[in-house]
Design a protein around this nucleic acid. Sequence first.
DNA 1: GGGCTTTTGTTGCCTAAGCAACACTTCCGG
DNA 2: CCGGAAGTGTTGCTTAGGCAACAAAAGCCC
Lengths: 195, 195
Amino acid sequence: MLTEKLAPEKLDPRVRRTRSLLEQAFFDLVQEKGFQDVTVQDITERAGVNRATFYAHFPDKYALLDHNIRQGFLKEIDKRMLNACHLTLDNLRNLIIAVCEFTRSANGHCKPAQGQFESLVETQVKAVLHELMLKWLEQVPLSVPAETAATAASWAIYGLALQWSHAKQPRPVEAYAAEVLPLIASNLNLSSTGV
Amino acid sequence: MLTEKLAPEKLDPRVRRTRSLLEQAFFDLVQEKGFQDVTVQDITERAGVNRATFYAHFPDKYALLDHNIRQGFLKEIDKRMLNACHLTLDNLRNLIIAVCEFTRSANGHCKPAQGQFESLVETQVKAVLHELMLKWLEQVPLSVPAETAATAASWAIYGLALQWSHAKQPRPVEAYAAEVLPLIASNLNLSSTGV
DNA sequence: GGGCTTTTGTTGCCTAAGCAACACTTCCGG
DNA sequence: CCGGAAGTGTTGCTTAGGCAACAAAAGCCC
């Protein structure tokens, strides 16, 4: 599970519970009232958690939003990659598909909201991608620093996903992923001739 | 809410959460494996609660079973009595119906189990009835001690409910309740002529 | 029976969560 | 413009829960 590998794996059951209560309450409330109208008090009250406890976990509701976006993206990845522990063409293609799907649903689902929302998604998605790329690349010989390759790849992937999701009539994800795959693969010194 | 009036009303959210997690896990596990095959470890593991915490709340799994039965009965009562705070013919009739329904579902639902199960239900139901009768009677003048009247009424009600639930083709509850109502009412010095 | 594993209760120490009170900002209505 | 109401962060102290280790029962298999 990637959700548990990029995020800490084993943690105090109390913490796990509290987080999940806060996440759930927050998610529901945003559906009902919209992000701006949700207060920290609302969240803690709904979650049945003390307000002080909220601040022990998140600086403010924006951080919780970031966190939820990140978790959502991680879940999207987990759905498609059971053995995401190293760099292969298959994993890379599935990753691209995941980013496309998540970007579309995240930005589409909250259309009423704002463009500022998109930038939050962008930040989280690129951050996760960057971490994941670094993990993948540490086992592979490269002609440039891993940092560099990771940055290039994560930006490229997100950019392509965004472009795809903004198309009037988006093409099938699979086709798009197959098309851009060689491009990304080459960034990572990964041959794609043998697909 | 009666559930919160006979049981303590305000209590530490952590306690509330833990109890509810244990109750739910226990209930599910009993459905799956049967009461005897469920261990305390199973319950706490499923609930995501420490085993030591279990013992801070219940002496053993039998106590948890008692507790669940009691809660189930209280919920059954709550469904039918919105203003159950004092003794009226209406409340009394609804109470009788609740006892009938609960007894039937409890003993019917777990038919595969045992006769010993029935006696657990009996204990809890009579206990709750007794407490409730005392609450009702403390505002009413009586020719006998309230304890006495409460005992008679709670035994009588449960006995009648059990008899009803054991009938081959049970009659409609409402009819049965209406029939036995005067009998119980008279135990409580409550005239029933004016229904 | 004797050895093995599993489950049961129990205990002491540590950490997360609850609570109440605080000062501070923001927002509204008179 | 002012004053109250509501939301925000923060803090010290208390309590519930997690953890690990224990001894003791309860099953099981040979």
